[in-house]
Amino acid sequence: MILAKEISADLCLIDDYLARKHAKSLGLTVTGTLGVLIKAKEKGLLKEIKPLLDEMIQKKFFIDKKLYDEVLEICKEK
Protein backbone atom coordinates (compact mmCIF):
# COMPACT_ATOMS: atom_id res chain seq x y z
CA MET A 1 0.00 0.00 0.00
CA ILE A 2 2.87 2.33 0.72
CA LEU A 3 4.37 1.71 -2.70
CA ALA A 4 0.96 2.10 -4.35
CA LYS A 5 0.61 5.52 -2.73
CA GLU A 6 4.18 6.51 -3.65
CA ILE A 7 3.76 5.65 -7.32
CA SER A 8 0.12 6.80 -7.49
CA ALA A 9 -1.01 3.37 -8.65
CA ASP A 10 -4.23 3.28 -10.65
CA LEU A 11 -5.36 0.06 -9.00
CA CYS A 12 -4.37 -2.24 -6.13
CA LEU A 13 -5.13 -5.95 -6.22
CA ILE A 14 -6.02 -6.97 -2.65
CA ASP A 15 -8.27 -9.82 -1.48
CA ASP A 16 -8.07 -9.51 2.31
CA TYR A 17 -11.11 -7.60 3.63
CA LEU A 18 -9.31 -5.57 6.29
CA ALA A 19 -6.44 -4.72 3.96
CA ARG A 20 -8.94 -3.58 1.31
CA LYS A 21 -10.71 -1.41 3.85
CA HIS A 22 -7.42 0.16 4.91
CA ALA A 23 -6.32 0.71 1.31
CA LYS A 24 -9.61 2.43 0.52
CA SER A 25 -9.17 4.66 3.58
CA LEU A 26 -5.83 5.71 2.07
CA GLY A 27 -7.64 6.73 -1.09
CA LEU A 28 -6.48 3.79 -3.19
CA THR A 29 -8.67 2.16 -5.81
CA VAL A 30 -8.95 -1.53 -4.99
CA THR A 31 -10.15 -4.69 -6.65
CA GLY A 32 -9.73 -8.34 -5.78
CA THR A 33 -9.14 -11.54 -7.69
CA LEU A 34 -12.84 -11.90 -8.41
CA GLY A 35 -12.96 -8.39 -9.81
CA VAL A 36 -10.11 -9.24 -12.16
CA LEU A 37 -11.93 -12.38 -13.31
CA ILE A 38 -15.15 -10.43 -13.92
CA LYS A 39 -13.27 -7.83 -15.97
CA ALA A 40 -11.53 -10.59 -17.97
CA LYS A 41 -14.91 -12.15 -18.75
CA GLU A 42 -16.35 -8.76 -19.77
CA LYS A 43 -13.43 -8.21 -22.15
CA GLY A 44 -13.85 -11.67 -23.69
CA LEU A 45 -10.59 -13.04 -22.29
CA LEU A 46 -12.47 -15.79 -20.44
CA LYS A 47 -15.44 -17.80 -21.67
CA GLU A 48 -16.53 -18.98 -18.21
CA ILE A 49 -15.70 -18.01 -14.65
CA LYS A 50 -17.56 -20.73 -12.76
CA PRO A 51 -14.94 -23.46 -13.37
CA LEU A 52 -12.22 -21.09 -12.13
CA LEU A 53 -14.22 -20.15 -9.02
CA ASP A 54 -14.85 -23.82 -8.27
CA GLU A 55 -11.15 -24.63 -8.67
CA MET A 56 -10.19 -21.73 -6.41
CA ILE A 57 -12.59 -22.97 -3.73
CA GLN A 58 -11.23 -26.50 -4.09
CA LYS A 59 -7.73 -25.08 -3.49
CA LYS A 60 -8.95 -23.39 -0.26
CA PHE A 61 -9.57 -19.86 -1.58
CA PHE A 62 -12.53 -18.72 0.50
CA ILE A 63 -15.44 -17.28 -1.44
CA ASP A 64 -18.62 -16.55 0.47
CA LYS A 65 -21.65 -18.32 -1.08
CA LYS A 66 -23.49 -15.01 -1.53
CA LEU A 67 -20.48 -13.46 -3.29
CA TYR A 68 -20.04 -16.59 -5.43
CA ASP A 69 -23.65 -16.28 -6.57
CA GLU A 70 -23.29 -12.51 -7.20
CA VAL A 71 -20.21 -13.05 -9.37
CA LEU A 72 -21.99 -15.70 -11.44
CA GLU A 73 -25.00 -13.39 -11.78
CA ILE A 74 -22.81 -10.49 -12.95
CA CYS A 75 -21.14 -12.78 -15.48
CA LYS A 76 -24.51 -14.18 -16.63
CA GLU A 77 -23.51 -17.71 -15.66
CA LYS A 78 -26.42 -18.26 -13.29
Rank of each mutant, 00 (worst) to 15 (best):
M1R: 11
I2T: 10
I2N: 11
K5T: 13
E6I: 07
E6G: 08
E6C: 09
I7W: 04
S8L: 09
S8E: 12
A9Y: 01
A9C: 06
A9G: 04
D10Q: 08
L11T: 03
C12I: 05
C12S: 15
L13S: 13
L13Y: 07
L13E: 08
L13R: 07
I14D: 01
I14A: 01
I14G: 00
I14Y: 00
D15V: 01
D16K: 09
Y17K: 15
Y17F: 15
Y17Q: 15
Y17H: 13
L18N: 14
L18F: 13
L18C: 09
L18Y: 12
A19I: 04
R20T: 02
R20C: 02
K21W: 13
K21R: 15
H22I: 14
H22N: 12
H22D: 10
A23N: 03
A23T: 01
K24I: 14
K24P: 01
K24L: 14
K24Q: 15
L26V: 11
G27D: 06
T29I: 15
T29L: 15
T29S: 14
T31V: 15
T31Y: 01
T31R: 09
G32E: 02
G32R: 05
T33M: 04
T33P: 10
G35H: 00
V36M: 13
V36F: 05
V36W: 02
V36C: 07
L37K: 04
L37D: 03
K39P: 07
K41V: 03
K41P: 00
K41E: 04
E42Q: 11
E42A: 08
E42L: 07
K43R: 12
L45M: 13
K47Y: 05
E48T: 09
E48S: 10
E48P: 08
I49D: 01
K50Y: 00
P51C: 06
P51L: 07
L53P: 04
D54I: 07
D54M: 09
E55T: 09
E55C: 12
E55L: 14
M56Y: 05
M56C: 07
M56S: 06
I57K: 13
I57E: 11
I57R: 13
Q58F: 08
Q58I: 05
Q58S: 10
Q58C: 05
K59A: 09
K59S: 10
K60P: 02
K60E: 13
F61L: 04
F61K: 04
F62G: 08
I63F: 01
I63T: 07
D64V: 10
D64R: 14
D64E: 14
D64C: 12
K65E: 15
K65G: 12
K65P: 15
K66L: 14
K66P: 14
L67K: 06
Y68A: 11
D69W: 03
E70A: 09
E70N: 11
V71Y: 00
V71T: 03
L72G: 07
E73T: 11
I74C: 03
C75T: 11
K76S: 08
K76F: 04
K76T: 06
K76D: 10
E77N: 04
K78Q: 08
K78A: 10
K78W: 02
